[in-house]
Design a protein around this nucleic acid. Sequence first.
DNA 1: AATTAATTTTGGAATCATTCTAAATAGTGC
DNA 2: GCACTATTTAGAATGATTCCAAAATTAATT
Lengths: 143, 143
Amino acid sequence: MQLSVPHKALLDKALERSGQRLTRQREHIFALLLEKRDHPTADEIYARACIEMPSISLATVYNCLEILTETGLLRQVNFEREPTRYCPNLTQHAHFYCRESGQVIDIDLSEQLIAQLMAALPKGFSANHIDIAYDGQCGSDRH
Amino acid sequence: MQLSVPHKALLDKALERSGQRLTRQREHIFALLLEKRDHPTADEIYARACIEMPSISLATVYNCLEILTETGLLRQVNFEREPTRYCPNLTQHAHFYCRESGQVIDIDLSEQLIAQLMAALPKGFSANHIDIAYDGQCGSDRH
DNA sequence: AATTAATTTTGGAATCATTCTAAATAGTGC
DNA sequence: GCACTATTTAGAATGATTCCAAAATTAATT
């Protein structure tokens, strides 16, 4: 598994900007997230990482995910108090959690809809972020 | 602290409907939530409950909150992986979490806005619930 | 009111995701 | 390659929540 040239450049730049070093582990975790964009948990990422890098530890996976999130390369996705999932899609979008198939699907929202949500806030309130999570059935029969 | 007659009737009916008994503990926890609608965590509710009912246990608080949620009298509110908070406002609404003051504020959303959010889903998807959490500054200086 | 049966409460142990810690290892600039 | 600093590692610690089995309470029946 290999990071594409533009993604590699993105990673280099993001780490440099925040004074962090590029390590094999960080690169591998980032590549895994980009390769299969299914919103895995830290445990799932750890299991996948171990295939090519058996010596990696779970603590490192958590650490890499934290650094990648801080540097703005990943987003955390939470559903209730389930384990945190990770998402490399940085555009403003919502998440749909299908309780049947367990899949998490990105839902694009129009600028206009976001603007309306912002406009629903009382005077004086300002939001840095809106987290929108749907849950229901996605109609696919994959399990 | 006393449950109003209509709220008492609501509690009775909801418990009966799902075959649960009315207990002092359940009534007390429900009354606490209605009295101060500040989205407390289980720990905070436990601390408040102990004032009038020192023998109550944390396990019972969790159990009551679960039952009251299941019977549809309370909603759980989560922000990332912070401890779950509880809310007796059953109308469709969003939550605003002020990182400065720590306050959680209910935000009303129009039917129309909810409908638009539902309409943003791909064909075949159906949502039971949409969870909307803003975070930012609420502009109050209470701390 | 006593008896029984079923549910609830209780305190403590267990669980699970995540964070912390301190020693070992790997990057970076010279 | 050397020294300096950041990172990784394994395992212990944490914190919210759930589980457990015994004691207490409630509801139904006599």
